Amino acid sequence: MKTRQRNPDVPEPDEPWSEISPGLWMGGHYWTDGTGRLQPAVAGDEFDLVISLFTRTGHGPHPAVQHLITELPDGPLTAGQIHSIQELARTAAHALRDGRTVLVRCHSGYNRSGLVTAQSLIELGYTSDAAIRLIRQRRSPRALNNETFEQYLTTGLHVAHLLSGLDTLG
């Protein structure tokens, strides 16, 4: 499965991860340092829970850290994939309520991680617009540049789940 859409107009972020709200971090597996060189973002034990929507060997986290992996495409999702996003967001929100730190990451930390992070914020009481705005303010104006993901959030993942499930009926 191809998980990432290439967009040459969107450069890699200039930091491995960003704190979106207290304890909730969003990032990727790669970032660009001050010299313009691509660097690996390797999670160690600085987070209590790491949710990876893209994986690469050697990028952590430490074996003692809870690590949930659900590889997803950076494009239209199936009903099952949307359900996975909902479950991951509920897990992240529960961890945050328990005072744990959470990193949600994908390749660059813009779209797939943005979708789960935004839905986690919605689970915590944010509106979809406020969650998207906060992510773009704290991570990057380029975050959630996948219009389909933004539409999922503004429509509501529960509605997107139902609508995408219609394709399987018949």
Score class of each variant (00 low, 15 high):
Met1Gly: 08
Thr3Val: 09
Gln5Cys: 08
Gln5Tyr: 05
Arg6Asp: 08
Arg6Asn: 06
Asn7His: 12
Pro8Thr: 07
Pro13Val: 03
Glu15Ala: 15
Pro16Asp: 11
Ser18Ala: 13
Glu19Arg: 13
Glu19Ser: 12
Ile20Val: 15
Ser21Thr: 05
Ser21Ala: 08
Gly23Val: 09
Trp25Gln: 03
Gly28Leu: 07
Tyr30Leu: 09
Trp31Ile: 08
Thr32Ser: 04
Thr32Ile: 00
Thr35Val: 08
Arg37Met: 02
Gln39Ala: 11
Gln39Met: 14
Ala41Leu: 12
Val42Tyr: 03
Ala43Gln: 01
Phe47Glu: 03
Phe47Cys: 04
Leu49Gly: 04
Leu49Thr: 10
Val50Asn: 00
Ile51Glu: 01
Leu53Phe: 03
Phe54Gln: 06
Phe54Val: 02
Arg56Thr: 00
Thr57Gln: 02
Thr57Pro: 00
His59Gln: 02
Gly60Gln: 00
Gly60Glu: 00
His62Gln: 12
Ala64Tyr: 03
Ala64Thr: 13
Ala64His: 11
Val65Phe: 00
Leu68Tyr: 01
Thr70Leu: 13
Leu72Gly: 06
Asp74Trp: 03
Asp74Cys: 11
Gly75Trp: 04
Gly75Tyr: 06
Leu77Ala: 07
Thr78Arg: 13
Ala79Asn: 07
Ala79His: 14
Ile82Pro: 01
His83Trp: 05
Ser84Tyr: 03
Ser84Thr: 07
Ser84Ile: 03
Ile85Ala: 05
Arg90Pro: 01
Thr91Cys: 04
Thr91Glu: 02
Ala92Gly: 10
Ala93Lys: 11
Ala93Arg: 11
Ala95Tyr: 04
Leu96Thr: 06
Arg97His: 14
Asp98Trp: 09
Asp98Ala: 15
Gly99Tyr: 12
Gly99His: 14
Thr101Asp: 15
Leu103Pro: 02
Gly109Glu: 01
Tyr110Leu: 06
Asn111Phe: 04
Asn111Tyr: 05
Thr117Tyr: 07
Ser120Asn: 09
Ile122Met: 15
Ile122Val: 15
Glu123Tyr: 01
Leu124Pro: 02
Leu124Asp: 09
Gly125His: 14
Ser128Thr: 13
Asp129Ala: 15
Ala131Met: 05
Ile132Gln: 08
Ile132Met: 10
Leu134Thr: 15
Ile135Leu: 15
Gln137Lys: 14
Arg138Ile: 01
Arg139Thr: 07
Arg139Met: 05
Pro141Ile: 13
Pro141His: 10
Asn145Phe: 09
Asn146His: 13
Glu147Asp: 10
Glu147Pro: 05
Tyr152Phe: 12
Leu153Met: 14
Thr154Val: 14
Thr154Met: 10
Gly156Asn: 07
Leu157Phe: 12
Leu157Tyr: 08
His158Cys: 07
His158Ile: 05
Val159Glu: 10
Val159Thr: 14
Ala160Ile: 02
Leu163Asn: 15
Gly165Glu: 10
Leu166Thr: 14
Leu166Trp: 12
Asp167Ile: 12
Thr168Trp: 09
Gly170Trp: 13
